[in-house]
Design a protein around this nucleic acid. Structure first.
Lengths: 221, 221
DNA sequence: TAGATTGTTAATCGATTAACAATC
DNA sequence: TAGATTGTTAATCGATTAACAATC
């Protein structure tokens, strides 16, 4: 749950996600030059407490000033310096079905340091085509393309039945991180980071909270 | 972070998500009759500790037996009795783009107590059509259809720019829970449960952990 | 100066882990 | 019985909150 960084610094995975959220919220702001923002403004936008925002922001190394708050532009710089890797990270996606296309549309040409460089699909009809500017390759070319572009992170948008096999393949090609949308549990060697996005779990959670909310209350917030 | 249930019982949102995961893992098992499972088996599948599985399962009210472990069938029953609502919950989805179709395909005819009953889209070309067995309606019919089917949970698969407006609409029609894929922050009245699925944040997290893993280590697990 | 926000510390709170007696 | 797993309690640990001095 806790990630150890260099220099004996630590950060929780939760804080990490919140920092991404803060950046997203700041980017959504239509800010002019010299614009500044207060912790409670970020807090309101992201649904957390102001104290937590301040505490999280302390980790990134940019200090605000009392009364004036945080300079938006400089805070964004610091957030990016913290969150982004030094060199651009290459990302590939496997599976160009409905979900795959949605993800490609979502990510194509988005973050400067996160490059979606290639897509793969087993269906011959989909290969050799370009989806939202991303070229779709055949599975046979997986390792070549991944190696060529030095892909470090792979997104799995394949059926559950194929997920484990694809995961094994991309890891064998040198991928260090996997974002999986497949409703399965992947078994991977240590050192490979796996993050699951499980919409069924998310939906069940909403349904539970919404339907039991008549007799249930959140104690916090 | 903590949900108060009836009878002075409490459960954390984290535990709730894990219970969904456990059920998912059990359903994926190809189990015979009278099959049983140990806490450490569930733990290994879901990537948590065995002690935590036991602690979580205690909340659902079904006890295992030493040596024999948990009876899969009865555990699944208890999990469903806990997680599912008494009456089937009706779910609607707004937005039938790539993402919307992927979600529909994911959820159609899946959980017995979670019924995806309708889809909506602003594009006239998409309305009046049937996607994976789900009828797509025009936005003008939103309230009528939601009221007719007593929809309690809405899934938002619309562009960020439209998310807030759509959210306001479905809430006005009586929806109590929202699962949003839109990269925006929704402002909704208290009492409405909102869950965001943010693939950008998830991807940034994976990229961060994967790329810094050379000099970073997770302290737990 | 007064007011508001900041970084920081102390206090609280909850969640996870570890240990263990009970049970099949 | 011996072995293994269970439910439960105690101990640890981390995260969140509350409070406050410092600062513009």
């Amino acid at each position: 749950v806790v990630v150890q960084l260099t220099g004996n610094k630590r950060i929780s995975e939760r804080s990490l996600e919140r920092l991404s959220l803060y950046r997203r919220a700041l980017l959504l702001r239509t800010s002019g030059t010299g614009d500044s923002v207060y912790s409670h403004q970020i807090a309101a936008a992201c649904g957390v407490s102001a104290a937590q925002v301040r505490r999280d922001l302390m980790a990134v190394g940019y200090s605000g000033t009392p009364t004036a708050g945080y300079d938006v532009a400089r805070l964004l710089e610091s957030l990016s310096a913290f969150l982004d890797t030094q060199d651009p990270t290459s990302v590939a996606i496997v599976g160009v079905g409905d979900l795959g296309r949605a993800v490609i549309n979502f990510l194509a040409h988005r973050r400067p340091k996160l490059h979606l460089v290639a897509a793969f699909d087993a269906d011959p009809d989909k290969t050799k085509r370009v989806v939202h500017g991303i070229r779709c390759h055949a599975m046979a070319d997986l390792c070549d393309v991944i190696t060529e572009h030095a892909v470090q992170v792979a997104i799995l948008a394949v059926p559950a039945a194929a997920a484990q096999e694809v995961a094994d393949q991309v890891v064998a090609c040198g991928v260090k991180g996997i974002l999986s949308f497949a409703p399965t549990f992947l078994r991977l060697p240590p050192g490979v980071v796996v993050e699951r996005v499980d919409m069924t779990v998310a939906l069940e959670k909403v349904a539970f909270l919404a339907c039991k909310s008549v007799r249930a209350k959140r104690t916090h917030r």
